[in-house]
Design a protein around this nucleic acid. Sequence first.
DNA 1: TTTAGGG
DNA 2: CCCTAAA
Length: 687
Amino acid sequence: MVLQRRLEYGFNGYQAPAMPRASRSTRRRAKFHRAEDNQKCAFDLLATVAGKLLQEKEDPTLSSDTSSEKDQCGFVKGCQNANKPTKSELSDERSCDKKSFSYPSQTNDKNCCLKEFPNFAIDGHAGIASTVTSSSSVERLSEEKLVDGNRHFNMENVTSEVKLYSSDYSKGSHFKLDGDTSKGKDELHKFGSGIDMCSSENLLDENPPALISLGGNAKLSGYTDRIPLSKGCDYVPVVRDDDENSSGCIHPINTKTKSCRPKTCIGDNRISKRLASNFRKVAEKPKDDTRSNSDGDWKRTYHSKRNCNKHPNSQMNIPFKKRKFYYSSVSNNNGFIRSSGIYYSPENCMNQDACGSPPRMHKDPGISSLEACHHQTLRCRGSQVKLRIKSFRVPELFIEVPETATIGSLKRTVMDAVTAVLGGELHIGVFLQGKKVRDDSKTLLQTGISNYNQMDALGFTLEPNSSQSLPIVCAAHCSRPSADITQPVIRYPSSPAVIHQKIQGNSDMSSEHQVTILGSHFESDHDSAPSPINISVDNGMKDSKELVAVLEMDKEELAMVPVLHKPKRSEVVQRRIRRPFSVDEVEALVQAVEKLGTGRWRDVKICAFDNAKHRTYVDLKDKWKTLVHTARISPQQRRGEPVPQELLDRVLVAHSFWSQQQTKQQHKPHRESGHVDGSVLVSDFCY
DNA sequence: TTTAGGG
DNA sequence: CCCTAAA
């Protein structure tokens, strides 16, 4: 149920200047200290999406697993004498535990309603409006779209636009890319800035979307760096998606501040800081695997997960990744940005006849690939082909935020959306005469690119990586029967059925026209590395998610081909979903700790949570920590599902007891691991 | 890998 | 829950 009316912002692609990624440390600072910081990166955004979605979409398998009942007494008896069990003893414990105690079933099943949360759709249709949203949102969005002729908002940077849709007629909103002319030329040379999303009211009438001009370098408030933006922006009219059927995939984003979030929201802003380490660890945490496994064999699950990680489908569950961009560019007198580290190697084409290998991109790791040049030029100088990218277009984006959202959060959301698009791993597609050139082994000459007369027919596209960029959350088509809660129910729409899109060609500068200008109608590339955001468009234009590079002839400029820094796949990670312990789980934990004591979390895990794949011994340790804390605070201060006081009392007793035991053993290091004391005392806990 | 403890 | 030093 929609609790709030939301503003929905449609972002058509806009000129993509270098979109920086704040350093990790910066992000962390920003997250912790500046809630309104516009540097909040897209990772947070996506992580929030993922987390929210996951939370809302509990594992149906676990949720439905209500058959098991635990035999508390059996559990205790089985472990009664296992105060300090050896490995073999633990094996015995396990067997007895399994027989007598079953991991409490999940009870916190939740519906999959996502519409309460702001929906955020990143739709990579280059120049074509599209909507990716939940069905519920779609309805609302569609209604508003159909009725709302005003409130559109265009944010354009060269060939881009940002549209804002709102059902609220009383207000107007718009964004603008704030050209920062206050900075000197030196600033123009810097990369790493953002876009200043300014908002004002009553600026829009019922006509057309406000178009925002750009000049100089746009900035995003809060950014310390500047991105030089190309001048001479041209505008693209709003092209809206009026397809009521636009549904299937949603990208919920919680843009609220922490205080505004639903209590169960887990999409906290701490996500990104853990990305790096998670990237490293995701594959080495077998017990982190919470994938539901009917046979309870976590090892098998572990292996399957490992294998799954190598599988494309698995990668598609990875919603975001750590990205690092380096910017080192200079702008020439023409205002173009030159990336000296990326260029077509002349040697590859000097001797085209003998050049059996395709032109290779030489990439300086220190050079950003997002340096969208003002113009992309391809020309032939003898046998040497030089290219320059004129501009990249950011696919249109649709976001949805509550009306109560702050301007700052709105800015941040927009920034995140843009960053998410630009930060994804991209591939380069080459189009010639409207046909996609698929054979990488062909030479330019063989392909015809070296033909000067056909230069106008050459086009480049930035194609989001199918496994990483632009994660789209699919709410309506999540077909994972044994969905692992920790494995985000996130997928990239690879089927046209997932996302519907229409082109509203009501303007002379529609996206279609732009594409026409590019000299190509884009052929579908479904058969080759299906783009995660392939959109079915009824005009034949496909791969609309691609960022389009405009080619222009330029006889002066050095060839430059922007290329995105390719993040390592191993950096992809997803924060585990928060799954509060149920009372049954707490009870199981308490019993296990009563028996085994604190400090033996692995044993506790094996003993009481062996079948709970998503509970690691670290989790259990953490839970015990919180339980002790909870037991010590007043009931009024406690949050979440109330834990029976009886359990909390036991927690305190067990905790004090085992703390005492630890102290004793520290004073008696010579003593055996406490079998005698333990068994005697532990028996007190076995009622 | 586990434990322990801070974040 | 995450992260990580230390064992």
